[in-house]
């Protein structure tokens, strides 16, 4: 029996489309003129996936989307190498690495984003930790986790420097009137959100710098690997690339500088969460609804009561045992032939 779901026919059609497209791409790559710009194969994969994705159930969609995203740098690399002679593959690699370096350089100089449309797909590798962070934060805060995703470093840094002082002064204006306390609470929230955004920018920038160092490390590793045996497949190159990145990463994240960045990011997030809860509780109180504070107090009291109960019950059991033992002992004294009861 065919176990495939009903959407399978449509997917088969999509697969045929992809195969035909792939065939064309193969031909164009095989007959490409050396030195010309590579074909849009990696981009084609993305577009193909956008067409297929709606027919795929969400959990599978997420996994497969990830596979497509992560295979793009690999395919991008393949396109560049297929476009050159084997003697010229060093130039292809140089071109690829230079593209990455330029993206990181531009990001560091605050002129672009590593996830921008012009950035090489491989630059997205350094976005992975930040992407995972954004996803985690989305589930924890009322503000979107990708609050900075589209903001270019340039804008963010410039705005931060130019406006920080003004922002701080604005957020320090004393509240007035009946809503004075509420105004101050909101000022506090915005101060904390600004601190969090700044912490996130610093964290982001650290990964951009790490990316540049990883490229250098990759070049060194390439020399060392080539001295042992020639690298003759893309897969070898990709694995070497990941090893080079992990090595630099481990070195960096064990440093005090990283511990400080990491601590600042988590602490800033906690501060935003704390202040959001204060405001939310005030709102709930205004609507005569139970607040988080009240529920926490109840939970703490219940917890303390249960612990006291357990302690008392244990004391009671001990006393009962002692009583039983002393009772048994006295009855054993008076009736020496009776067997002792074991527990």
């Amino acid at each position: 029996m065919d176990e495939r779901p009903a959407s399978s026919d449509w997917l088969t059609a999509q697969q045929k489309y992809w195969d035909a497209w792939l065939d064309l791409t193969r031909q164009s790559l095989a007959f490409a003129v050396p030195g010309e710009a590579p074909g849009p194969a990696a981009e084609g994969l993305r577009r193909w996936w956008e067409a297929v994705a709606p027919a795929v159930p969400p959990p599978t969609q997420e996994l497969f989307g990830r596979l497509v995203d992560l295979s793009r740098p690999y395919l991008e690399m393949a396109e560049q190498f297929a476009d050159r002679t084997s003697e010229d593959s060093g130039a292809a690699l140089d071109q690829w690495l230079d593209g990455l370096n330029q993206t990181f350089g531009a990001t560091e100089r605050s002129a672009a984003s590593t996830s921008g449309p012009d950035a090489p797909a491989a630059a997205a590798l350094w976005e992975l930790p930040l992407d995972a962070w954004r996803q985690a934060v989305s589930a924890l805060l009322p503000i979107p986790g990708d609050v900075l995703k589209s903001a270019k470093q340039a804008d963010a840094v410039r705005v931060r420097v130019e406006l920080k002082d003004k922002r701080d002064r604005l957020l320090s204006i004393p509240g007035i009137g009946y809503t004075r306390e509420l105004q101050e609470q909101y000022q506090q929230l915005w101060r904390r959100v600004a601190d969090y955004v700044e912490a996130l920018q610093h964290y982001d920038l650290a990964f951009v710098r790490l990316g540049r160092r990883s490229i250098e490390n990759f070049r060194k590793r390439l020399d060392a690997a080539a001295a042992r045996a020639p690298i003759d497949s893309l897969r070898q190159l990709y694995d070497l690339w990941v090893d080079a990145c992990e090595e630099m990463y481990v070195e960096y994240v064990l440093s005090d500088e990283y511990a400080a960045l990491y601590g600042r990011l988590i602490n800033a997030l906690s501060a935003v969460k704390q202040q959001s809860s204060v405001l939310l509780d005030d709102m709930l109180e205004g609507m005569n609804l139970p607040t988080r504070r009240e529920i926490d107090t109840m939970h703490r009291r219940i917890h303390e009561t249960r612990r006291e109960n357990r302690t008392l019950r244990a004391d009671l059991e001990r006393l009962n045992e002692r009583l039983e033992r002393s009772g048994t002992a006295s009855s054993t004294d008076s009736k020496p032939h009776r067997k002792t009861k074991h527990h």
């Binding site: 994969l45 396109e79 593959s89 060093g90």
Partner: peptide, 20 residues
């Protein structure tokens, strides 16, 4: 930097393999 020696047909094969 040492250069890898990846023939174009090898790159094409790997490209096709991943895509398929």
């Amino acid at each position: 930097m040492a250069s890898p020696r990846i023939p174009p047909d090898q790159a094409l094969r790997e490209f096709t393999n991943v895509s398929q």
